[in-house]
């Protein structure tokens, strides 16, 4: 078991945003969380990545407890994420964004920096090459020296992914990775997500509204509504789940989109 959440709850004032959710993921699995707007999907992401502390319940990664830990600690344990509204370091170059992602894998201390030791220079060189590889992998080759804020929307998404991969996570959380993309770009992204899992054996958890993407790549789907888990299963099971259909009625039915 890679990720395990037991009875996790989060309350904002009078609103029960997340209500006693149990959730598990295996290593190398692709899973999705779906649900209508305001169902608590992003809140759940934020709890996993350490932004919000759980009021109740525990979250563990590889048996290590994450609840109550700071975001940098959680990231250090091997969880990376992207955001629904892209959050790059806009004033840094593309390459630098990726290098910042490698922060925890670089060991140089202050003394080494001051002395500019050979070890540090070698490590710098290695990091630089690794970052370039990641940029090639995500299709951003040749854009290393551009400022992140000058990239096109699709490239910014790709860069966010490259930066998340630079953390070398065991689990990657993607918050609506195809939002705002045209069908061709969506198709590319779906392929890419599967490739990341297949080639790097990283477990991927998505929040996604596009049902075609969700049904196409997910091995497991969890449905939230008003902070409560109402269904869980394979795409096939979810498609025919009566409560899910009810929850989506008036919004959008899975088949339509």
């Amino acid at each position: 078991m890679l990720l395990e959440a037991r009875g996790v709850s989060k309350r904002f004032g009078g609103l029960m945003a997340i209500d006693k959710i149990d959730f598990t993921m295996e290593a190398g699995q692709i899973a999705s969380i779906i649900g209508p707007n305001g169902a608590g999907k992003t809140t759940f992401f934020n709890m996993i990545s350490g932004y919000y502390f759980a009021d109740q319940g525990t979250i563990t990664l590889d048996g290590k407890r994450l609840t109550g830990r700071s975001p940098e600690h959680v990231a250090g344990c091997g969880i990376a994420r992207t955001f629904q509204n892209i959050r790059l370091f806009p004033g840094l170059m593309v390459l630098e964004n990726v290098l910042v992602g490698m922060h925890r894998h670089l060991s140089a201390n202050l003394a080494q920096i001051v002395l500019n030791t050979r070890g540090m220079r070698r490590e710098e060189q290695r990091a630089y090459e690794e970052a370039r590889e990641l940029l090639i992998y995500t299709g951003l080759e040749g854009k290393e020296q551009e400022l992140a804020k000058n990239l096109s929307y699709g490239d910014q998404r790709r860069l966010e992914l490259a930066r998340a991969l630079a953390v070398k996570p065991k689990l990657l959380l993607l918050d609506e990775p195809t939002a705002g993309m045209n069908p061709r770009e969506t198709e590319e992204m779906t392929t890419f997500i599967r490739r990341v899992r297949d080639e790097r054996n990283i477990a991927i958890l998505l929040i996604e509204h596009d049902m075609k993407v969700v049904m196409g790549i997910s091995e497991r789907i969890t449905v939230l509504n008003y902070g409560v888990k109402i269904a869980e299963g394979t795409p096939k099971e979810i498609r025919s789940h009566s409560e899910v259909i009810a929850a989506y009625l008036g919004e959008e039915t899975p088949e339509e989109s």
């Binding site: 932004y51 975001p71 940098e72 990376a80 370091f89 806009p90 992602g101 922060h103 925890r104």
Partner: peptide, 13 residues
């Protein structure tokens, strides 16, 4: 530029 995102890169703010 962004403290929260930086902390996601396991940077101790």
């Amino acid at each position: 530029q962004d403290k929260e995102t930086a902390s996601l890169m396991s940077i101790n703010v």
